[in-house]
C-alpha cells in the first residue's frame, strides 16, 4: 500500500512564484473578511438586551471580543499592505496554479461535503463505504491490488465500525431516512 500510482505532480516542493505577494494578498483578503464579519456582529451585539441589575449585558463580552478582533484585523491589514509595495505584481495564472496545488485538499473537502449530505439519507454504513473508497482512489490507490485493499478498508470502516459501535459501545450510528 505504500506505493502510490497517482499521476499527480509532487506537491509542496515546487517554488511558489511571487510567494510573498501572494501571501500578503491572501492575508489582506482574509482579514478584510474577518473585519467585515466582526463589524456586522458588533452592530448586532449592540442590540442585545442589557440587565438593569447586572454589571454587564448579554452583548458586552462578545462586543469586547469583536472590538479586539476588528482592531487586530485592521493592524494585520496595515502590516500586510506595507509588504505589497516591496513585491511585484502576481503573474497571470497564479490563482490557477494555487488551485492546482491544492486540488487534493479541495477534492477531499468536496467528498466530505457529499458524505455529510449522504449520511442522514443513506445512513452511516452506506455513506462511509463510498466515501472512504473514493478518498483512497482520489489520493492515489489506482492499481488492482491497491483498489482491493482500499475496498477492504472501506468495508471494515463502514460495516465493521457500525457493528462495533452498535453492539459493543451501544451507540447507534445513523441508519438513514431512505433505508
Amino acid at each position: 500500500m505504500s506505493g502510490t500510482s497517482s499521476d499527480s505532480r509532487p506537491q509542496g516542493r515546487e517554488p511558489v512564484p511571487h510567494g510573498e505577494r501572494a501571501k500578503a494578498v491572501g492575508h489582506i483578503v482574509f482579514n478584510l473578511a474577518l473585519l467585515g464579519i466582526a463589524v456586522m456582529m458588533f452592530v448586532h451585539a449592540g442590540g442585545l438586551p442589557s440587565s438593569a441589575w447586572e454589571p454587564i449585558g448579554s452583548g458586552s463580552f462578545p462586543r469586547l471580543m469583536l472590538a479586539l478582533l476588528a482592531l487586530l484585523s485592521v493592524l494585520m491589514i496595515i502590516k500586510e499592505a506595507a509588504k505589497l509595495r516591496h513585491t511585484s505584481a502576481l503573474p497571470s495564472g497564479s490563482v490557477g496554479d494555487w488551485v492546482w496545488r491544492h486540488r487534493l485538499a479541495f477534492g477531499v473537502l468536496g467528498l466530505f461535503t457529499l458524505y455529510a449530505i449522504a449520511m442522514p439519507l443513506v445512513g452511516f454504513r452506506w455513506a462511509t463505504l463510498p466515501f472512504v473508497l473514493a478518498c483512497q482512489v482520489l489520493l492515489g490507490a489506482r492499481r488492482p491490488r491497491q483498489l482491493a485493499i482500499a475496498a477492504a478498508i472501506a468495508l471494515f470502516m463502514s460495516v465493521g465500525l457500525d457493528a462495533l459501535f452498535r453492539h459493543v459501545f451501544t451507540i447507534s450510528l445513523p441508519r438513514g431516512a431512505l433505508l
Partner: peptide, 9 residues
C-alpha cells in the same frame, strides 16, 4: 489537509 499538500514528499 496540510498532510495532503505535501503528499508523496
Amino acid at each position: 489537509m496540510g498532510n495532503l499538500e505535501k503528499l508523496r514528499d
